[in-house]
């Protein structure tokens, strides 16, 4: 590869990397690490723990892709991004994929030239109010002061909702969840609005979670999912099918507990195809035969990742809801592996 002198010097000093050649997957393999964009910290979805290890639901997707491509779920470089920087980071090749609760919208897909590879969490924008306020519906919020966490499509949904119901409000845009929460708890705003999952996560950390209620209205569709750049279809396929593998694994009952046993071969041909004991799906993607096995091996299938990070047993306590398998009445539906 031809390198300019300055760039060469920077690369030597480890401050620059050559990237974004024709195929992202080749770059990732050459680098030995997947650069995955995440939030700067949202409990349950992506946040570093006390030892600096990233964990969360979005992080699980990153690790699964890393395992599928590189065989190691820890071969991920997590790049924290803000609402402002995430798209540039992806477009410029600084990150290979973005798994930062980003809503799949038309304009992001078409105008900004990104490719959403699936939906890992079906969310919707909700409201949280103190119980003492005695509000039972978002339509009672006429004249309220609303704290908004900026960054996703939150501001736009909120404006649309209040406009459609012909009621007024006073927005207070706040950058980080921690600050918005402080404003809300101090009573500087009556309502806190962001994605319902975020609200649940925030409420879980309150001194008295029971004093606050989530209103029944969910005012928007927020399909959150990982995304990659337009134009590299092979890489898009890898991310899409890695995620589908996690969903399919749950559907077929493949868990981290029985993974070794299942991958020895089973009676279900679809499981065999998924885990690479039959057929050549991995080869089609340009990966090893056991790519899906590696992906599932990191933290289990979709349901296990969900339960470990944001499920009902955790302090965030989200129920599966829309995110249940299609068989259980949810929207998680993976195309077949064949």
């Amino acid at each position: 590869m031809k390198k300019t002198l300055i760039l060469g010097a920077l690369t030597l000093a480890g401050l620059a990397a050559t990237a974004a050649s024709a195929a992202t997957v080749d770059d990732v393999k050459a680098r030995g690490k997947l650069n995955c964009g995440v939030t700067t910290g949202l409990v349950g979805f992506a946040a570093p723990d006390a030892n600096g290890v990233w964990e969360g639901f979005d992080v699980g997707v990153c690790r699964a892709v890393a395992a599928a491509v590189l065989g190691d779920g820890n071969a991920v470089e997590f790049v924290p991004t803000t609402g402002k920087t995430r798209f540039t980071a992806l477009a410029s090749g600084e990150i290979d994929m973005l798994a930062r609760n980003t809503t799949w919208t038309f304009s992001r897909d078409v105008d900004l030239k990104f490719e959403f590879t699936g939906v890992n969490y079906y969310d919707g924008q909700g409201f949280m109010v103190p119980k003492a306020l005695g509000v039972s519906s978002a339509k009672d919020l006429d004249g309220a002061t609303v704290c908004i966490q900026t960054g996703t499509t939150t501001e736009l949904n909120l404006a649309d909702f209040f406009r459609a119901n012909n009621i007024s409000y006073e927005p207070v845009p706040i950058e980080t969840n921690a600050e918005a929460q402080q404003q809300y708890l101090a009573g500087a705003c009556d309502v806190y609005t962001t994605d319902a999952s975020g609200l649940a996560a925030t409420r879980a950390t309150f001194e008295a979670p029971g004093d606050h209620v989530l209103l029944p209205e969910i005012i928007s569709k927020e399909p959150l999912g990982p995304l990659v750049r337009h134009g590299d279809n092979n890489w898009g396929d890898i991310v899409r099918w890695t995620f589908n593998a996690l969903v399919t694994a749950e559907e077929l009952g493949v868990t981290s507990a029985n993974l070794a046993e299942m991958s020895a071969g089973s009676n279900n041909p679809e499981i065999n195809r998924l885990l690479g004991t039959e057929g050549n799906l991995g080869e089609m993607l340009g990966l090893s035969a056991d790519w899906a096995k590696n992906a599932i091996g990191v933290a289990g299938n979709y349901g296990e990742i969900f339960d470990a990070n944001i499920g009902e047993a955790t302090s965030i306590g989200l129920s599966r809801g829309l995110n249940a398998q299609w068989k259980d009445g949810g929207l998680m539906y993976s195309p077949p592996f064949r």
């Binding site: 402002k84 798209f87 304009s107 992001r108 900004l112 900026t150 501001e155 845009p173 950058e175 404003q183």
Partner: peptide, 23 residues
Amino acid sequence: ILVGYADVTATLGGITLNQTGRA
């Protein structure tokens, strides 16, 4: 923007930038 005041950095350089992606 740190205090939620809508100055030009918060509107043009904040929400508009976020929503349109026209960095």
